[in-house]
């Protein structure tokens, strides 16, 4: 092959680098890692069923944000007809009081950054200060 001596090792190095995350995790035994967000103990239900929230919490929070601030509507009627105040701080964080044990569990695992915490603070964070 033309320039084969360069191309084949080059390809091998490239493949090695590309697959690095996989075998790195394999060696360090992280492949089986599952994030464990800690759920509040005393509360039984969230505003919507768990499966819905798990998938759609971003959109739900986005909707709440624009509804509460931009449209002035702050009452959320859930699918089971219960009413909630649309507020990250006054509704969500009343149960989920710890960011590290709840949000960060999955967000860190999935490498998804969000900027909510630049402004909204968790009760736990304040106690530490």
């Amino acid at each position: 092959m033309y320039d084969g001596k360069k191309i084949i090792p080059g390809l091998l190095i490239f493949l090695g680098l590309v697959t690095y995350p996989f075998w790195h995790n394999g060696v360090s035994g992280k492949t089986g890692y599952v994030p464990k967000p800690k759920l509040p103990v005393d509360k039984k239900e969230c505003v919507e069923p768990k499966d819905y929230i798990r998938v759609n919490h971003k959109d739900l929070l986005d909707d709440w944000k624009s509804s509460a601030i931009r449209k002035g509507r702050r009452t959320y009627v859930a699918s089971n007809q219960k009413r909630y105040t649309m507020s990250l701080t006054r509704t969500c964080m009343q149960c989920h009081t710890d960011r590290a044990e709840f949000c960060d569990q999955c967000h860190k695992y999935a490498g998804v950054e969000n900027k909510c915490w630049d402004c909204h603070m968790f009760p736990k964070e304040i106690k530490k200060e």
Binding site: T89, R90, M121
Partner: peptide, 10 residues
């Protein structure tokens, strides 16, 4: 002292 019910700003 942060007042929890209102967000701080970035």
């Amino acid at each position: 002292k942060v007042h929890l019910e209102f967000p701080t700003r970035t």
